[in-house]
Amino acid sequence: MACCGCNDNGNVAVKDVDKLDQILSKYEGVKGSLISILQDVQGLYEYLPIEALNYISEVTGIKLAKIYGVATFYTQFRLDPVGKHVILLCQGTACHVNGSKAIEEAICEELEISEGETTKDGLFTLTNVACLGCCSLSPVMMIDGEVHGKLTPKKTKEILKAIKAEEE
């Protein structure tokens, strides 16, 4: 039932299957590699498409249930596509003490999303993350790998507006 890529019960064409095969062959015969496999696969697609999970299961023989159980346990893994810019908002203690809640509110207000959601235009995803370790710059967020520190609600909105403006 190889078909268009419609989302029915497995057996669906997987994108970039060559690259996926490369990842799987790298871990062939190495027991206990499921998490590493999922990390590499997420590196490939930015998230874990269900088709890819099915494919991993078929090739490795690891049961789909187990893969799903692991993928939903760890916060690093995402089962849904993410926006172009991922905002990682630090939830460390120092950031909390220095007002990260107000920063979260500012982001949510500016982008009209809640934590974990993606904007309708697909530009931004907001994710809370464990301590980024830049405590002296708190409160901190990271967008596309760049750290923005000593945030205020106003500064946060300006940063987001600047990215939006660039995209237009």
């Binding site: 999970l53 249930a65 159980g69």
Partner: peptide, 15 residues
Amino acid sequence: TFANRGFETKVAFDA
């Protein structure tokens, strides 16, 4: 399998 974690943990069939 168990899916999710913490208070959200549930029993799931496959994915």
